[in-house]
Design a protein around this nucleic acid. Structure first.
Length: 335
DNA sequence: TCTGCGTAAATTACGACCAA
DNA sequence: TTGGTCGTAATTTACGCAGA
């Protein structure tokens, strides 16, 4: 069994890791009785930690917001993750966070153990952000959405879809997913009774937090995979399945999750599920992949790929234009 | 049949007390 | 310091009943 001090720190870490804990669950995690948990909660309160409790069927404990941020307890992996996240935030992916991220990163490095400093240094050397590729998102909005996801609290907000049509949404937020260029919110839409993926930069105004909800299981169990599919295939008029004659790892380097979903078939082939607005555009992009492929569906795409192949073949057989002057010939010779 | 109200049961936190 | 027991308080849920 842990000694009292260690158990208090462990209890504090548990309360920080999740918003709400039933007393019995805390007792099981700490391997003590509920009575001891209550004593430890009292100790935390006497030390100034605002631990709130509630009775009844849904009773339990939660760490409330105090006047100051309490000491956070991070294990090695969590400290690395925070460090990397702050490093990326300094690149301006989230609007208005650059200076704050730099200050926080400096504080974190100051208290970091030596063994972690080396790992962080290596990690930062390997990750060189180029800056925000997509629209920036106000960090206050990200913090509010993440808090609602963690606290299992409903959200209401205005939303503008791809065509700019405005609507009012009432959702049960599940997870935030970043694709590198954009942030997305995966949530259960209470009005439409279905899962929806929202681009966070399209949320209008400040989301309003509502009552708590019981968590649902994401289809497939993986929020990131669900969002990947939602943004890479579903929004497009043309959806296709392509058999790529190349190893999955090689294709993953070329096709990010926000572009298409890849699935391993065997060591030398994989399947791509992808979307586009027009068949012509998809045929062009498939040709640019630089690997052999077969269109599994739809049939219309097969016709467009065949047409593109004929045009490229004909172009290769055409004689070069006769209008090239001496100057251009000279430049070509030097190249 | 639906809605609102009152009541009982179940569940959980809390405090006091005692023993190891 | 910890675990166990007991009584109390608070809250939610289930159920029955009356009225529209």
């Amino acid at each position: 069994m842990l000694d009292t001090s260690s158990r208090l720190l462990r209890l504090l870490a548990l309360l920080q890791s999740r918003r709400f804990w039933p007393g019995g669950e805390l007792a099981a995690r700490l391997e003590v009785t509920g009575r001891t948990v209550r004593r430890d909660v009292d100790r935390l309160r006497s030390l100034g930690y605002p631990v709130e409790s509630s009775s009844g069927l849904a009773g339990g404990y939660q760490l409330a917001a105090g006047s100051n941020l309490p000491p956070l307890l991070l294990d090695d992996d969590e400290a690395l993750a925070v460090s990397l996240g702050l490093r990326l935030a300094t690149a301006g992916t989230v609007a208005g966070m650059e200076d704050s991220a730099l200050r926080a990163l400096a504080k974190l490095k100051q208290v970091m153990p030596a063994r972690l400093r080396t790992r962080v240094r290596n990690l930062h050397a390997a990750v060189q952000p180029l800056g925000a590729a997509g629209p920036s998102v106000p960090h206050e909005r990200l913090v509010a959405l993440a808090g609602a996801c963690r606290g299992l609290q409903r959200l209401r907000f205005g939303y503008a879809d791809q065509q700019g049509r405005a609507s009012e949404r009432d959702v049960e937020p599940h997870a935030l997913v970043a694709t590198g260029a954009r942030w997305y919110l995966l949530a259960w839409d209470a009005v439409r009774a279905d899962w929806r993926t929202f681009r966070i930069d399209r949320i209008v105004g400040t989301p309003r937090v509502g009552e708590r909800f019981l968590p649902r299981k994401v289809p497939g169990g993986d929020a990131a995979a669900f969002v990947s599919r939602a943004i890479s295939v579903q929004p497009y008029a043309v959806k296709a399945r392509i058999l790529l004659r190349a190893p999955l790892a090689r294709m993953r380097e070329r096709i990010p999750p926000s572009v298409g979903r890849l699935k391993r078939i065997d060591a030398q082939t994989c399947e791509l599920e992808v979307g586009a607005q027009r068949h012509e555009a998809m045929a062009y992009h498939l040709a640019m992949l630089g690997v052999d492929f077969s269109v599994l569906e739809p049939k219309e795409l097969v016709q467009h790929v065949r047409g593109l192949a004929l045009r490229l073949s004909a172009a290769a057989d055409l004689p070069p234009p006769a209008t090239a002057g001496r100057g251009s010939r000279g430049r070509r010779a030097r190249e």
